[in-house]
Write a protein that binds this DNA or RNA. Structure first.
Length: 308
RNA sequence: GCUCAUAGCAUC
């Protein structure tokens, strides 16, 4: 059963929800984990109608099930439904609260997010991190710093968030100080610094930092590539692209936008063809690329293609 | 590698 559940998980994590469902339906025995895994396939892709239908069919639900639904509503931006759903959760746990906190913060309701935080009887590092991120996203760096200093324990996400907070308001020096203070420098925190250099147009300095990072992940590579593409340095971007082991949709979209910006729509389309899982951003990058280069017919063709 | 929440990357 554990094996079968892992199979469903594998399907839905790769965006193959249909196939996952087929597998799920054919399983002779299922447990709650099977149901939750399948549910996550819908909620994480924003298929909330299907999720609701599936959720109602579940004869047993646990906090995972409820939290998945809550996060699904937040992911599609339906804060009204999320708030209502949150209030209907039988026993909201720390994950439910952190999820709701995050949802409120992401939609600008910082005071309400803070309200949830204050109401939490127990707070873990994720709750603290979510609250710090909330302040960072709302450009309230002083509050973010205050929480960062007050929190009982900090993990790599805490550091990355606060570093990024300083990067976003152009305080790269302070960001670098924080990175120096960080006990175990994560790829994420270092990537935030790279993007800080890029933000102030110091691309070559960013590259120096990038080169020094060990265990670079796909986000790190994408950050550096975007640094080049935003400045029309497509040769360097392409060179990095060829060096990276695993590319994702963000990688390709970055390249599409980059080639579009320098007027090379042939190359942009070539990048587009590599995308396995096309999303709204990949289509947007291509369509706006055609439009910005005056190729309105191609843009329209693309829109038609997208809607099929 | 059986299921849930927080950070660093792309379009507008």
């Amino acid at each position: 059963l554990t094996c079968w559940n892992a199979m469903i998980s594998g399907y839905v994590k790769n965006g193959m929800v249909k196939e996952g469902r087929k597998f799920f339906d054919q399983m002779p025995v299922k447990n709650l984990v099977s149901w939750n895994t399948m549910l996550s396939g819908y909620t994480q892709r924003g298929e909330m109608c299907l999720a609701e239908e599936f959720f109602e069919q579940m004869e047993q639900k646990d906090s995972f099930s409820w939290n998945l639904m809550l996060d699904g509503y937040i992911a599609v931006g339906n804060l009204g439904a999320a708030t209502k759903f949150f209030q209907s959760i039988p026993n909201p746990n720390i994950v439910s609260q952190a999820t709701m906190l995050n949802g409120l913060a992401k939609h600008g309701s910082i005071a309400e997010a803070r309200g949830i935080f204050d109401q939490m009887t127990e707070k873990n590092v994720v709750a603290w991190n979510a609250m710090i991120a909330a302040y960072v996203q709302n450009c309230m760096i002083d509050e973010a710093v205050k929480f960062f200093n007050e929190m009982p324990e900090r993990d790599a996400v805490s550091w990355t968030t606060i570093i990024n907070g300083h990067v976003r308001i152009g305080q790269l020096e302070e960001a670098k100080c924080l990175l120096n203070r960080m006990p175990c420098k994560s790829v994420g925190a270092q990537t935030a610094i790279v993007s800080g250099f890029i933000r102030i147009n110091r691309i070559d300095d960013a590259r120096q930092i990038f080169n020094q990072i060990r265990n670079r992940d796909v986000v790190c590579w994408n950050t550096m590539i975007a640094g080049y593409t935003h400045h029309g340095r497509m040769n360097e971007a392409f060179e990095l692209l060829q060096q990276m082991a695993q590319k994702n949709t963000v990688t390709w979209s970055t390249m599409i936008a980059g080639f579009a910006q320098v007027g090379n729509m042939e190359k942009a389309f070539e990048m587009f063809e590599h995308i396995g899982e096309r999303n709204v951003v990949s289509w947007n990058s291509l369509i706006s690329g055609y439009a910005q280069n005056g190729l309105h017919v191609d843009a329209l063709k693309c829109i038609v293609l997208m809607m099929r």
